[in-house]
Amino acid sequence: MKQAPLAIRLGRNDLRLIGRDQLLISMFVFALLLSLALRYGLPWLNEYLSQHGVMPGELVDRPLYSYYPPILAHMILYNGAALVGTVFGFLLLGEKDDRTWCAMLVTPVSSLSYLGYRVAATSAFGFLIVAGMLVVTHQGRLGLWQLPVLAVGAALTAPIVALFITVTAENKVQGFAVAKFVSLAGGIIVLGWFVAEPWQWLFGLFPPFLVSKAYWMAWNGATDWWAAVCLAIVMQGIMTMWLSHRITRII
């Protein structure tokens, strides 16, 4: 009997592993709940704060609506992708703990093929989650055709998170600490929003920031937002290759 392609065989195994772990499943449920909260909660909160003289008010002279870009970029483009990356990062850590990598050395599957599948699968799931969250939370400021382009850029953050967790954590306990650090690192995106250009571009040294930058540019009607997406794809691709190289040295 002809053997199924590598991607299908590994994909089936991943689905079984995810299905057994209620925590991992809950992460995907959280993405849906977060999207609904942003879609319906933000407009309500914006109206509430405006009616009660808080935003705008004495302390803040702008309505909450003016801060939608950094909020949505951080919660969807970064956290949505990081959520997927965390799920796959824990799958990799599980295989690391079970010494699956050592066993793989005596199989026809090369480490590069294995990591290539991992990166591709994580990116694909990242695209689906981020694109879905963008559609659900869509505020009407962007064209629908722009959403999948932004989702492509954001999706590449997912394998970076997965590989980073795998490289820096020895087990799942350490993985939780690293995942927390990854979540906190997203604050760079929010901080960058308040920095004036051209200094704001310095935050691009943290590649996921560039996807959010593209989102803000598109939100404000800039026609060259796609250039920031392309730069994000290139820089995140370089980071992914570097992390993959680090992993091949420890397999």
Rank of each mutant, 00 (worst) to 15 (best):
P5C: 08
P70E: 09
G85W: 04
L202H: 00
D98S: 14
Q22P: 00
V87I: 12
M75D: 01
T248D: 01
M27P: 00
R141P: 00
H245A: 15
A179V: 05
T223K: 15
N46R: 11
G11V: 06
G57D: 09
P43K: 11
D14W: 03
V161R: 03
Y40M: 08
L92T: 02
I189F: 01
G143D: 12
K96W: 04
L210C: 08
V178P: 01
H74Y: 15
R9C: 06
W193V: 00
L23W: 12
L210N: 05
G57N: 10
A124I: 13
L91K: 02
V167P: 00
A155T: 09
L191Y: 09
F164H: 03
R20S: 11
G116L: 08
M104T: 10
A73Y: 03
V152Y: 07
G53D: 07
S113V: 02
V195P: 08
L210I: 07
R16A: 13
S111K: 14
V60R: 03
Y117V: 05
R9Y: 06
V152H: 06
A37P: 01
G94Y: 03
S35M: 08
A218T: 08
Q51E: 15
A232Q: 09
Q236R: 10
T100M: 13
T107C: 11
V190R: 03
G175K: 06
R20E: 11
